[in-house]
């Protein structure tokens, strides 16, 4: 399918692209700071990735290879829809292979396969302000960032510890970038937070409805907030992926029947497929194999 002549390459008009590109350069120069930008209406609804789509549309060129994931999977409906959109308006090559992609647009996950120098990961962000649920007013949170006044966030995390014995934030876990700005990593599980630290890839974040763009340049310090006596930890699964046998990966829980039988499988489907094609076999996959 070719791009429709009615719309510009990558859908956005050149003036809009310039505006977004300028915001991206500022975001890179001030890591973790949310740059306001004049977000446009996109042909998909707000909250469905319009920020990420605008960022990708502003950076993508004909030689790029695009991967789009949602919940770690390339074949979830919204990932399919966004990928089809870019195929239609840019005609670029697409892939599910993390290693082969030059741009990865994601919602809620960072791929398991380590990102490399030269790659760009674009996050779709619903609420870019990490302080928003503590202070609903933009005028207030802006001042808090200006004064580097993050006490409220620490109080909230500490109250969690007092009440639950641990920090009860499991996703969208706040990070501090380059020792200055507290930043929302988008609703990725905190399992993925360590992947952001000193990543060789450029990380761009787009929030369309909230009209903010922010960035983490490659090789930047990204620290998950914690306390000396309650250090940051990530969720560990007590069993490997049932399909590929992979350890140290994020797993989805799949309900198999109405008797509560459950199976845990890789959330990153491309990673799982890759391992299985290399011959790794998980418990469930072995059962299926034997049955055949």
């Amino acid at each position: 399918m070719t791009g429709e002549p009615f719309y510009n390459f990558a859908y956005l008009d050149e003036q809009t692209k310039r505006m977004i590109r300028r915001a991206i350069l500022k975001a890179i120069a001030i890591p973790g700071y949310q740059v306001p930008f004049a977000s446009r209406e996109m042909p998909m609804p707000y909250g469905w990735g319009t920020g990420g789509v605008q960022v990708t549309a502003a950076i993508i060129g004909r030689d790029d290879v695009l991967k789009v994931i949602d919940q770690g999977a390339d074949d979830t409906t919204n990932a399919v829809s966004i990928r089809a959109f870019f195929q239609k308006v840019t005609n670029v090559a697409v892939t599910t292979d993390t290693g082969a992609a030059t741009i990865i647009q994601t919602r809620h996950r960072i791929p398991e396969h380590p990102l490399i120098d030269g790659q760009i990961i674009v996050y779709q962000v619903p609420i870019p302000e990490p302080l928003r649920f503590l202070e609903p007013r933009e005028t207030e949170t802006r001042t808090m960032h200006a004064l580097e006044e993050y006490g409220l966030m620490h109080v909230k995390l500490y109250e969690d510890i007092a009440r639950h014995g641990e920090i009860a934030t499991t996703y969208a876990y706040p990070v501090k970038v380059e020792g200055r700005y507290v930043m929302d990593p988008s609703p990725t599980p905190k399992f993925d937070n360590p992947k952001m630290h000193m990543s060789p890839a450029l990380q761009l974040f787009g929030a369309g409805r909230e009209r903010r763009i922010y960035a983490i340049p490659p090789y930047s310090d990204v620290v998950s907030l914690d306390f000396d006596d309650h250090p940051f930890t990530v969720q560990r699964f007590d069993k490997p992926c049932a399909l590929c046998g992979g350890d140290d990966v994020y797993l989805d829980e799949v309900i198999m029947d109405d008797r509560g039988t459950r199976m845990f499988v890789c959330s990153d489907t491309a990673h799982c497929d890759g391992r299985r094609s290399e011959g790794h076999v998980g418990k469930q996959a072995a059962v299926e194999e034997a049955r055949r």
Binding site: E41, P45, Y46, G47, W48, T50, D70, Q71, G72, T76, T77, N78, R107, H108, R109, P126, A168, T170, Y171, A172, P187, T188, P189, K190, F191, R209, Q235, Y250, L251, D252, E253, S267
Partner: peptide, 25 residues
């Protein structure tokens, strides 16, 4: 209302990765 409907309706999109993290907790 275009912003509002988008964000309210985006709850239809899969959120199982985050839900998994909450389930575990």
């Amino acid at each position: 209302n275009v912003q509002a409907t988008g964000f309210v309706e985006h709850l239809k999109l899969p959120h199982y990765v985050d839900f998994q993290a909450e389930l575990d907790l």
